[in-house]
Design a protein around this nucleic acid. Structure first.
Lengths: 257, 257
DNA sequence: TGTACATCAGTGAACGCGCGTTCACTGATGTAC
DNA sequence: TGTACATCAGTGAACGCGCGTTCACTGATGTAC
């Protein structure tokens, strides 16, 4: 299992946290193990059959458990889906953050690129988890926003901090390159700046729009590769590097300017 | 039904084409009507329950037909899915082309924008059809490429022609703006240029990469709006206009340059 | 024009399948005294 | 430390559901002579 992923390794938020497994009773230890097993097996099913076909019975069967037994651990099918989604968000965020944190903070381009490459690598390794969080919505299922909001924005929080560092360094790309009209950016996303996410920054609507353009291009590049939207591409990685560079230029001006 | 859509209006490719309905016998007329009904009802189900939940029994039921009766018109569930996909591609291509063709050919920016806006409008009107062709793949279903390839590339064909017109007018944006490295573009997409799609053009790998960057940004913008990937956006249309402008700038240089 | 035959549309029953969820139950683990 | 009780994990049967697909069939429409 992915060592960068804080939740895949066990303890969900409502379990006795910070307690070494050794000093738990048999029951508690077993529960943690089974809970982890359920998520693991469910993710395997996700990878082979997709989210719509995820079945509690099948997961129970794979664990050698009778189908009703799984209800000791999971409220319902939808609740399991929610856990998978939350788990995937955290896994992606951890992968991205860990890649980002290996880069010197003042190398802005390298920080952007590391985020982009980590996103792509994660998506290629776990295409169905990627589809779960960035693909078509699962029919007849609505994620409870109180559980998905925080993990779902974790990557964006990191990018906003990076964007603000770019601004502070005076390295923001000229928005006229992108043909941005400030008034339109203001009506488009101005109100988002009041979110607490931006409290510690000095970003304005145009900056944010540039960031969203870069992020949209980046996410679009990964999406089109994972979902094969462009048909067969001779060298996906090389194309991605080109698109990654393009997305970087939406935000960060080259040094010589 | 969408009047711009050549296939939604009836006659699939293997039906007696170009024959006025009036001079067909009762049987043939009825068959055309039922075939159209099936596609219509199937699309309704798609819109409410998603592709994974599409069920032949449910479609038959809605048509007042016994469940086995539908096999007179449809080979299998997968084959119906294929028809829906092909139909959606054609519908999108027709909408985009018709919007594009109302713009004067020498107004390159307006041509790009019309394509982008038509794509977005189509996706907003038919989000599940959009998800079907640009969202997560349907589990346990693989589209037969011999049926989807032509409709699936129809929009790209149009964009390639536009891109070549931009090149011919000497209006291609400077690829250095996007940080493109020619050698990397060549390995990434060079081999694609041998496809017949590019036979009538003089595009090189860098040009194509610019076009793909623009298309990726555009499609990403629509995808993120339809799938609500950015959370709540104050004014989706205004943001889209900003991203549309940005995508346009990836390809077309502003006049004053 | 009428008749005999071939084609087709739609029926109804059936097969075998998997699903989510509930419920009363047994036996093991934990806890309070 | 041992005992009585409470909690919990997992069982097995059942409910009611919808699905894709096949098959032999009836009756209507079309066609060749």
């Amino acid at each position: 299992m992915d060592p960068l992923d804080p939740t895949s390794t066990g303890a969900p938020a409502d379990a006795p946290a910070d307690t070494p497994a050794a000093q738990l009773g048999k029951r508690a230890r077993n529960r943690l193990a089974v809970e982890a097993d359920i998520l693991r097996v469910a993710r395997e099913h996700l990878a082979t059959d997709g989210a719509a076909a995820l079945s509690l019975r099948a997961v129970a069967r794979d664990l050698g458990m009778v189908s009703s037994g799984i209800y000791r651990y999971v409220e319902s099918r939808d609740e399991l889906l929610t856990r998978l989604i939350v788990d995937s968000y955290w896994s992606l965020a951890a992968a991205v953050r860990s890649a980002h944190d290996t880069v010197p903070p003042d190398d802005l381009e390298a920080r952007w690129d590391s985020v982009g490459r980590a996103l792509r690598a994660w998506a290629i390794n776990r295409p169905h988890d990627f589809a779960l969080i960035y693909g078509s919505p699962v029919p007849d299922y609505e994620a409870p926003s109180e559980r998905t909001e925080e993990p779902g924005t974790a990557v964006l929080v990191l990018l906003v901090a990076l964007l603000d560092d770019v601004r502070a360094a005076g390295r923001l790309a000229d928005p006229r390159w992108l043909g941005l009209v400030p008034a339109r950016a203001e009506t488009g996303v101005g109100a988002m700046l009041e979110s607490p996410m931006f409290a510690a920054t000095r970003l304005d609507a145009v900056d944010l729009t540039q960031g969203l353009a870069a992020w949209t291009l980046l996410l679009g590049a990964v999406t089109s590769e994972i979902f094969a939207q462009l048909g067969p591409v001779p060298d996906g990685e090389a194309l991605f590097e080109c698109l990654l560079a393009a997305s970087r230029r939406c935000v960060i001006a080259p040094v010589g300017d």
